[in-house]
Design a protein around this nucleic acid. Structure first.
Lengths: 143, 143
DNA sequence: TTAAAAGCTAGAGTGTTGTCTAGGTCAAGT
DNA sequence: ACTTGACCTAGACAACACTCTAGCTTTTAA
């Protein structure tokens, strides 16, 4: 039931350094329990919480915001609207990221397909000399 | 036809600092032309190239990789397969990001909906006291 | 019993991506 | 003449999120 920092590092993929760092930064709902010798003992709940933090992080939430969220949870009930606000705005942020990424993917896929055509053509004979229509400044190498 | 650094900053959304920085970092296909007085003169092609760099950046390509790509383009024809490689691997990277983000969105949307239920219930009467089933360590506040 | 492995704290160091400052030039307007 | 504003270079500084080091204690395995 109680996990050492090393075990938690293994399970979460965070380094032990990062785990201590996150704790110092106030990202854990409660300051991790300690054994008599001072060593950290993590519960499954701690690991779940960390997993959530990792999801937040990987979707671009800054540590600062995770800390604010953590504080709200730590304060207990009464601020659910604030938590909801924070979550919704992160939701919006993710949605915006998704749209940007999809657009980026569209653009790069287009570039890839142009290069593929060129390369396919070039496999037969090396007749083309620049990436015109894919690279801006390389275009026609002129005014 | 020739744009000042300030105009390019306006058009691209990059700061003039960032524009000079990108140039120093070798992210521009050719070192920007200068007026007699040393001031930069950007062409539309430069702006197009910058727009592409911005797309690369915003989809998580490090400056380092953009520089490598730029170098390939600068070298001229003959390395199209290398460019294609680089582009394809970034394409894969974006795809992976999209999947991660979608998963994150799923998780956070679930949390949001749980909070919404709680808050809706609480609007009538403040009967619930914690975020159990949404927050790990806050759960039942016990062993 | 002793050596390796794992943990601890405090704090320094790092990589990335810019941003800002200092000190100066140049052109235009008043 | 003088101020304002855009531009220049070189280089210092900064935010973010870790990562690593030093110096120490404790646990575990041989």
């Amino acid at each position: 039931m109680g996990l050492s920092i090393g075990q938690v590092a293994e399970r979460t993929g965070l380094s032990v350094h990062a785990l201590r760092f996150y704790e110092r930064e106030g990202l854990l709902a409660d300051p991790v329990r300690r054994e008599s010798n001072g060593r950290r003992v993590y519960s499954e709940d701690d690991v779940d919480w960390l997993a959530m933090c990792i999801k937040f992080r990987s979707s671009g939430m800054p540590l600062d915001t995770i800390r604010r969220y953590t504080e709200l949870v730590r304060q207990g009930s009464g601020n659910e609207l604030d938590r909801l606000d924070l979550l919704r705005s992160h939701q919006d942020y993710i949605t915006a990221q998704l749209e940007d990424l999809q657009e980026s993917l569209r653009v790069i896929t287009h570039k890839v397909s142009i290069y593929e055509e060129h390369v396919a053509a070039g496999t037969a004979s090396c007749l083309w000399t620049d990436a015109s229509s894919t690279e801006g400044p390389a275009r026609a190498s002129s005014a």
